[in-house]
């Protein structure tokens, strides 16, 4: 494998890891606050659809992004109302949202665009995020190794990719260096401690769930208007669940989440590039390569993580004791 191939794979890794990373951080906020969120998939999917649909209709990718975030936040709010206000089962609420998103997006798409459940293809300049060439990428192009690494791997992504990677230190800072972060982590561990300290458990959990909505919104918009050129049915393809696996793998920590998402992104990239591969004289079928991230998910969750301790109050609605 030459340097060029490697850079192409890593470049693709970064792009494929982006939606995972955003969704993973969304889950991190929500679950650190004690609200399990298996509806990451749903939120990404509605965001993908509405961002593509609005971008296609208006020609503005930014309006698309806003529409995607708004749609995702509506779903987050439903999850919040069901599981925080009405103290419903968080898993069931998440499952319901996943089904709702999967059916609803296709239904609306058919009615809106008459293209069999997809949106019209988007082009650069009219509804798709354009790649950004970072400063000096051209000037450094001639430098060996550094040139192609910088120009071919780091430069040339859409703005949302850089947003996603910037979210990692930001999330860390918010969680571990701010008052809000301290309270958010506390409410996921022992909401009783937060309540008796005179802080609203409900408000904190809603904030966390809505932040998850925003991040999933960006993830979905990136899928439909950055990574791909338009919405197709069920285009999230289980990324929400892989993000959840990455979250467990990362033990609910932001920097670990980055590593976990890059790993899943890499497997995805390898699977995409080597549709068929010869290993020890046996040709590995393409399907197996494409299934790699999912196989890894199972392997990781089956116990390769070591001891992953979830937030202690996760999954439970807070009820004041008598």
């Amino acid at each position: 494998m030459d340097l060029n191939t490697l850079i192409q794979i890593l470049d693709s890794t970064i792009r494929l890891a982006t939606p995972l990373l955003l969704a993973c951080l969304a889950g991190l906020f929500s679950e650190r606050a004690g609200v399990f969120d298996i509806g990451l998939e749903a939120k990404m999917l509605v965001a993908a659809f509405f961002s593509a649909a609005v971008a296609a209709s208006t020609g503005s990718v930014w309006l698309g992004l806003l529409a995607g975030i708004a749609a995702s936040m509506v779903f987050a709010l439903i999850h919040g109302i069901a599981s925080i206000t009405f103290r419903g089962d968080q898993l069931i609420s998440g499952v319901a949202l996943n089904f709702l998103a999967s059916g609803m997006t296709v239904l609306i798409a058919r009615d809106w665009f008459n293209q069999g459940g997809r949106t019209p293809p988007l082009d650069y300049g009219s509804g798709r995020f354009e790649p950004i060439t970072l400063p000096y990428a051209d000037a450094l192009a001639g430098v060996p190794v550094l040139g192609p690494v910088y120009g071919g791997m780091i430069s040339g992504h859409s703005i949302l990719v850089y947003v996603a990677f910037a979210m990692v230190p930001l999330t860390w800072y918010i969680l571990f260096r701010t008052r809000f972060g301290l309270r958010l982590r506390a409410v996921g561990e022992n909401p009783g401690a937060v309540d008796t300290a005179g802080i609203s458990v409900v408000r904190l959990r809603y904030s966390a769930v809505l932040i998850a909505g925003v991040l999933c919104g960006i993830a979905g918009a990136y899928l439909a208007t950055g990574l791909a050129a338009g919405f197709v049915r069920d285009m999230t393809a289980g990324r929400g669940f892989i993000a959840l696996a990455a979250l467990i793998f990362a033990k609910w920590r932001p920097w670990y989440a980055l590593g976990a998402c890059l790993l899943f992104g890499l497997l995805d990239a390898i699977g995409n590039r080597y549709q068929s591969i010869e290993l020890l004289g046996i040709s590995v079928p393409a399907q197996l390569m494409q299934a790699l991230p999912y196989i890894l998910t199972v392997v990781i969750l089956a116990g390769f993580v070591g001891k992953a301790i979830p937030p202690r109050a996760g999954g439970e609605a807070y009820v004041k004791e008598r």
Partner: peptide, 23 residues
């Protein structure tokens, strides 16, 4: 009403922080 995996200091401060920044 203590958060088990927080330090003593963090538990004491929780809810009575001075400002938005923790340090």
């Amino acid at each position: 009403k203590l958060v088990e995996n927080f330090t003593v200091l963090e538990n004491v401060v929780l809810g009575a922080e001075e400002g938005a920044w923790l340090t």
